[in-house]
Computed example of a mutant assay.
Amino acid sequence: MTTRRISAGTAVRNTVLVLVSLLWAVPTWLLVVNALVPAADYSGSPHWLPHGGFGLFDNMSQAWTRARLGPAMGNSLLYAVTSSAAAIVVATTAAFATVIMPVKRKTLWFWLIYSGTLLPLQVFLRPLFLAYARTGLYDAQIGLFLVYVAVAIPFAYFIMRNFAQTLPGEVIEAARLDGASWWRVFWQIHVPLSRSAMVAAFVFQFVAVWNDLLFGITLSTSRNIRPVMAALAELQGNYSNVGPPVVLGGALLVSLPTVVLFFSAQRFFVSSLKLG
């Protein structure tokens, strides 16, 4: 009887997971199917099944040329790599200080740092815009870099703190008894042990920065500064005459780097989630 109940529960769980997965896959399916339609043959209504000719590469080519996706993808790559790496360094250091080191009020420090994720990003737009306009950071790469680092730190800290709590305290105690300084413990013990969690946090933040549109269109105007999502949004502007298949082809094209990164770091991603 118990075995039958477990089997029935497993079957129900697997069925629910499959249904949820299919539901999540519907937008991706619609994106791919409609990106395949040649722009000249698009009727104005979305297709659920492949229809007409194969215009994916032509749509991608038009999106690449008209939106200047090459320089924009270079900008996003710069922002995503540098800001994510800087945020991971800060978050790892903060996690080490608030979990491993004997500091007071550890819970207070956690909420003080993590509270940066509790407010919607739209709250920061007006003060950021005014401050950037007065300090010369508006429409500058350093300005976008700073805001991306600040936004990425709280969630990266959340991941690194949870992972740090799973690390064996005996290793740290043994190192301290042998006379190792906190600086040495951090770089030679904590960082190597936290490598998988750092990679997972980097993937999270890279995807978030790469997909950002809000700060990209608010804090920049020049095409040599704007990230890729802001450049892609220009294809849907009032003065754009391209069809939806071109926009979808561009969206599919700019999503490839995040997909490649995720599958490349999947081993670190899964292992860190299991431990953290």
Rank of each mutant, 00 (worst) to 15 (best):
S220N: 12
A175L: 05
L77A: 15
P38L: 09
N59F: 07
F204H: 08
D212M: 01
F110I: 04
S255I: 02
L248Q: 04
P227W: 04
L273N: 08
T92Q: 02
K106F: 04
P227N: 07
A180C: 13
S222N: 13
R68L: 08
T65H: 13
A200L: 06
L118C: 12
T82D: 00
P192K: 04
Y148G: 11
S220P: 10
L23W: 12
S76F: 05
L22D: 04
S181L: 11
S271W: 00
W48F: 15
D178C: 12
G249H: 06
L193W: 03
F129S: 14
L253Y: 09
A164K: 05
S194R: 03
F158R: 07
F124V: 13
A63C: 10
M1T: 05
P244V: 02
P245K: 09
Q236K: 05
D212C: 01
Y42I: 01
L248W: 10
A164Y: 05
R226Y: 02
I217E: 07
F202Y: 14
S196C: 06
V228K: 07
L108E: 03
R134P: 02
P245V: 08
V270Y: 05
A208D: 12
S271M: 05
V89R: 02
G44A: 10
Y239M: 11
V81L: 08
N224H: 12
A156T: 09
R4Q: 14
V90T: 09
L22H: 03
V123Y: 03
V207G: 03
V90L: 15
R226T: 15
Y148A: 12
S43F: 08
H190C: 13
A174V: 06
G250A: 13
R66F: 14
A97W: 09
Q165S: 12
Q236N: 14
V185K: 00
A133Q: 13
I217G: 01
F145H: 10
D41F: 02
W64F: 14
L17R: 04
T65A: 14
L248K: 05
A35W: 10
F124N: 07
S83H: 03
Y138M: 13
V151P: 00
L275C: 01
A131M: 15
L248T: 04
L23K: 00
D139M: 10
L125Q: 09
A197Y: 11
L273S: 03
L144W: 12
T135E: 03
L273W: 14
D41C: 01
L214T: 12
W109N: 04
Q236I: 06
A233C: 01
S7V: 13
T2L: 11
E234F: 08
L31S: 03
L121M: 09
A39I: 09
V260H: 02
W187Y: 14
A140E: 14
R105W: 10
K106P: 03
W24Q: 02
Q205I: 00
A231C: 04
G216D: 07
V171M: 15
P102Q: 02
W109H: 06
L253V: 10
S115H: 08
P192T: 02
W109F: 11
R195K: 13
V26W: 12
L130V: 13
P50I: 04
T218Q: 11
A251V: 12
S264E: 01
T221H: 11
G216S: 14
I172S: 12
A25T: 01
A11V: 08
T107N: 14
A25L: 13
A233K: 07
P244I: 05
V16M: 05
A164S: 14
E170Y: 04
V20A: 13
N14H: 08
G44T: 06
